[in-house]
Amino acid sequence: MDGKRKESSLVKWLLIDISALFLGVMLLLPLGIVIWQSFKQGIAVYMKAVTDKYTVSAVLLTIEATVTAVIVNTVFGLFAAWCITKFKFKGKKLISTLIDIPVTVSPVIAGLMFMLLYGKQSALYPYLQKMHISVVFAVPGIIIATVFVTFPFISRELIPVLETHGTDEEEAAALMGAGGFTIFRKVTFPHIKWALLYGIVLCTARAMGEFGAVSILSGHLRGKTNTLPLHIEILFNEFQYVPAFAVSSILVAMAVMILVLRSVIEAVARR
């Protein structure tokens, strides 16, 4: 008995150490380097890089794309999760599988798809021109790319919760004469509230960091179609290491904020 217990405590500490080491090398060290590098030449240089007008416009564009993607995907995610879990219909499996495509397809390919669909070689292009809508190398393209890659995050959080929830409570409410919106507001929403918030957090984090698809559709027009990750890449390619790291630190700070928010949501939801 005693020998066994010693052995399991050894295994326990070994596993903890390996995990800690792995996290240190893979996560904490690189993040530390970002912070350290960005302050290497002093606060003044850091502030200059962060308050640069192109940086500010990149931050604003990132926020714009993220907020739009989150709103669109929240609405879509709620509808999709609702229809998949509450109704029986043909092709339900297919829809449920299609929702997952954005996570399985590489973002670069997603970017190329939209390029072909809305770009100059597309059959749609003349119509878009007539309506004065430019998608490729413009803000709409960036938003579309961001929406696409963050597509499944919210519905995927909601579907399992709604599935275990069943339809009984909704049926009970309907039998008592409640309308669809009342049922959603009073019965369904309290149940999915935390899963929805969690999905929104994940979606936000993913939208902020999106690089591949956005990179193809953006055209890298500084001050116009550059998001934060693209701006960092440009600075880095121009050998402006300190500004690149300084701008990275903004993105890291935003990510950490989201992470804290996530932990708070998890803690509250568990209560």
Binding site: D168, L175, K186, V187, P190
Partner: peptide, 14 residues
């Protein structure tokens, strides 16, 4: 019609 469900289906957040 009043309906009593097998698992009662009480509104758990009320």
């Amino acid at each position: 019609i009043g309906f009593v469900f097998q698992n009662y289906a009480l509104f758990r957040y009320m």
